[in-house]
Design a binder for these strands. Structure first.
Length: 788
DNA sequence: TAACACTTGTTTTTT
DNA sequence: ACAAGTGTTA
């Protein structure tokens, strides 16, 4: 069936991709049979190899649907798919099985759901749902909530699931039980039992279930396993060093038949053991697949020699690793700068000043800068400092878009409509917006449902036929809720996801509720978030729809639970400084990188200094941080910083001195101000005058960037371009609106501009819409048209 | 039931 | 410092 498509894309392959690879890369691409381990050092063109290996398979006549490629994030999958599509065309690439473990096996599980006694439309509980459920269980079992913390218990359960231990096996495992006893959590196994039970009854799987149930499916239904073994003739796994035991098992089972398994990774970049990742998977690959080939990609194309060598000098301190020698043939590059500041605020000021200054005197764009930290809490200081200098920035991570209250509430409606067994979704929406149905009533409903083994949805519909000791008035409110949901269910069957979402949003009066507490800025943000959600549903419908298929709400909801905010990049964030944790920086690269907060108890984290194993992981994390940098790397630490609202003194991280000193230069602390040779003094003089060209002294001439505008030494250009204000075009656009004008909005219709506040790019307009009342809109988001 | 003031724990990372 | 959770009151 793919035959004609093959011919179609073959002509694209006249571009010989093999010539774009070095010898080792090429070997890793063309030797596609059997088991392969590709050790890919940082910046060694790993994605390129994976991409071309898949292209090569397609070229050899392997149908795209026979290729299973598993990645660590949705974003990575999406990018790789796009790259492949650009060679072979989307008509072929779309049939590849490419995505995260969680998303791909979730869709397989939906296909096979009834075998495992789950509804096809099972919900996926995220961490918050799981914790809420655990909290309820801890209450129901009348356990001490000081002793039993949901997050902690979830960690125990997650660990058990990652090791394929059922509640029963958990209970039988002496080691686990004695550990729990030591922590005075004797009842953990019971919680695990009940948790499993309730998830099942709610038709819900948590993240770990998606993997564990896949194993159960393959274990208990050999013919199903066979089906997928036959289907997936070639299996590729990216970031193999961060796979856990269940993921290892899944891959192993699936690859048993054809034995075409290719794993790519770098043990030096294994940083997810806290989530159950086992570095052993990659270290033991040779044992598990005795017949295998190893390909080492050791040439780093990303960073300067100094950065690569410095990173090598650090990582060689780890004992357990696969021997390799990563090298760079790029320029030697400037030394790594170490900056010691007095306080965390000082650190923020230093980094933002440094960005402002180097940006003024070089060709760099804002997107060429990244600030990397160990914990999300550190972002605040940099936000403030950057904002003060009008430097645009973007924060990755933090709380996900999908975890925001208003978004979770909306999605809970969707979830309950699609899967009425979903108790956690029910509990979020039963009294939101307020229907005067309080906790007492909800508790009664939940208890009754559990005790009488009847689903909440079934119970709600016949609430008047059961004796729950709920008064008539409240019963009627519940029945109104039931009618509302039934209406949504019907509506969702007839209409596409976007129309349904809008309908639910309006009819449930979420929109009114959010608008209701009109504490300006906050509710404005919420409103915009909801608007953004609805827009993204619209996009989803538009992107996936074809002639003969309408995209329903259930299609959307199956996709959304596994999304994180890194998966939705926004246009307007194109040229901004990136702020993120090192974990989320994995796989990315920037010309200028600041790794901040290099202090004992912060990095390495105080929770990781107990064992050598943990320290090694923290060191790998630092290694990842360093190797994100292409040209300039700055590492900073503060003498003191605020922690839990108090000033805490801190010491320089042990990791700083683990970098071979020949690759670094430091600002010699504040005692050495007289030292004319130290770069901080130079820096300080720039900060005051901003006239000198920082680049001439501190870094090499630009050679990497293809996008470098060819303005040579035209300083006037750089000056204008790097001014913190927004570009001319955008400013004009913002100025086009005046108070009193009539404008038109896509959804709200015509309205009158009441007020304009803020400055570009965050100009806000307050518009009165007859149908909606006053709305505060961010100009850059709202597509407003001037009508008169 | 809901709003408010007061208390508590939180900060390691995330599919 | 802050958000979430708890308890008191109307």
């Amino acid at each position: 069936m793919y035959f004609c498509k093959f011919q179609f894309y073959n002509k694209f392959l006249t571009v010989n991709y093999l010539e774009k690879l070095n010898t080792n890369q090429r070997e890793a691409v063309v030797n596609y049979e059997g088991a392969s381990l590709i050790i890919a050092g940082a910046g060694s063109g790993k994605t390129r190899v994976l991409t071309y290996r898949i292209v090569h398979l397609l070229n050899k006549g392997v149908p795209p649907s026979a290729i299973l490629a598993l990645t660590f994030t949705n974003k990575a999958a999406k990018e790789m798919k796009e790259r492949i599509a650009s060679v072979v065309g989307n008509d072929v690439a779309r049939y590849l099985w490419m995505g995260t473990f969680h998303s791909k096996f979730a869709s397989i599980l939906r296909q096979e759901a009834e075998k495992l006694n789950y509804p096809t439309n099972f919900s996926i509980y995220d961490t918050l749902d799981s914790k809420n459920l655990l909290k309820t269980i801890i209450e129901d079992l009348s356990l001490d909530n000081q002793l039993y913390k949901p997050a902690e218990i979830l960690g125990r359960i997650s660990k058990a699931k990652n090791n394929m231990l059922s509640p029963h096996e958990y209970e039988q495992n002496e080691q686990i039980i004695s550990y729990d006893k030591m922590r005075r959590q004797n009842e953990n196994y019971r919680i695990y039992h009940v948790y499993t039970d309730r998830c099942k009854k709610a038709g819900a799987m948590d993240f770990d279930d998606l993997l564990m149930n896949t194993i159960f499916l393959f274990r208990d239904f050999p013919e199903t396993l066979k089906k997928y073994q036959n289907l997936f003739k070639y299996i590729l796994v990216d970031e193999y060093q961060d796979t856990n035991f269940t993921q290892y098992l899944i891959v192993k089972k699936l690859a048993e038949l054809h034995n075409n398994i290719c794993v790519v990774g770098d043990d030096a970049q294994s940083i997810y053991s806290f989530r159950g990742a086992k570095i052993e998977n990659i270290l033991n690959f040779k044992k598990n697949y005795p017949e295998h080939q190893v390909f080492k990609l050791e040439q780093n194309y990303r960073s300067t020699q100094t950065i690569v060598n410095a990173a090598n000098s650090l990582i060689k301190r780890n004992r357990r690793q696969i021997p390799k020698s990563v090298f760079s043939k790029n320029q030697i590059g400037g030394k790594i700068k170490i900056y010691n500041s007095l306080t965390d605020k000082d650190e923020g000021r230093f980094v933002s000043n440094s960005i402002a200054d180097t940006k003024l005197s070089t060709y760099f764009d804002y997107r060429d800068y990244a600030i990397l930290y160990r914990t999300n809490a550190q972002s605040r200081i940099f936000e403030e400092a950057l904002r003060r200098l009008n430097i645009p920035y973007k924060i990755y991570g933090g709380l996900s878009f999908y975890q925001r209250k208003e978004i979770k509430d909306m999605i809970s409606y969707f979830r309950f409509v699609i899967n009425p067994l979903d108790v956690e979704a029910f509990k979020r929406i039963i009294n939101y917006p307020s229907r005067k149905i309080g906790k007492t009533t909800v508790d009664k409903i939940e208890k009754y449902s559990i005790n009488h083994n009847i689903s909440i949805w079934a119970l709600l519909q016949k609430i008047d036929e059961h004796d729950l000791k709920i008064n008539k008035n409240t019963q009627n409110k519940i029945l109104l809720f039931v009618e509302l949901i039934k209406d949504f269910v019907e509506f969702s069957k007839e209409n596409d996801a976007y129309i349904t979402a809008e309908y639910i949003m309006k009819k449930s009066n979420i929109i009114g509720e959010v608008k209701g507490d009109n504490t300006l800025i906050e509710s404005m943000g919420r409103l915009q978030n909801i608007e953004e959600l609805v827009n993204s549903i619209q996009d989803f419908v538009a992107n996936n729809q074809d002639e003969n298929q309408v995209i329903k709400l259930e299609d959307y909801i199956q996709n959304v639970s596994l999304l994180t905010n890194t998966d939705k990049e926004k246009e307007e964030d194109f040229d901004k400084v990136s702020l993120m944790t090192i974990h989320s920086a994995k796989g990315l690269e920037f010309k200028n990188v600041y790794v901040v907060g290099l202090e004992e108890n912060l990095f390495p984290s105080s929770m990781m200094i107990e064992s050598e194993k943990d320290i090694e992981e923290e060191r790998r994390l630092f290694y990842v941080a360093i190797t994100r940098a292409e040209q300039n790397l700055t590492i900073s630490y503060a003498k003191s910083r605020y922690k839990w609202g108090k000033v805490v003194d801190s010491n320089k991280s042990r990791f700083i001195d683990e970098i071979d000193s020949q690759f670094v230069e430091s600002n010699k602390q504040h005692s050495a101000k007289s030292n004319a040779g130290n770069w901080e003094n130079k820096f300080n003089s720039f900060a005051s005058s901003s006239k000198t060209n920082f680049r001439e002294r501190t870094s090499e001439k630009p050679t990497y960037t293809k996008s470098t505008p060819s303005f040579g030494s035209n300083k006037n250009y750089t000056k204008i371009d790097s001014s913190p204000n927004i570009s001319q075009a955008s400013a004009n656009n913002d100025n086009k609106f005046q108070i009193g004008m009539t404008v038109e909005h896509d959804r709200f219709g015509k309205g009158k501009v009441i007020n304009i506040e803020g400055n570009p790019p965050n100009t806000k307009v307050i518009v009165y819409f007859p149908s909606e009342g006053n709305k505060t809109l961010l100009l850059k988001f709202a597509k407003l048209k001037v009508v008169g």
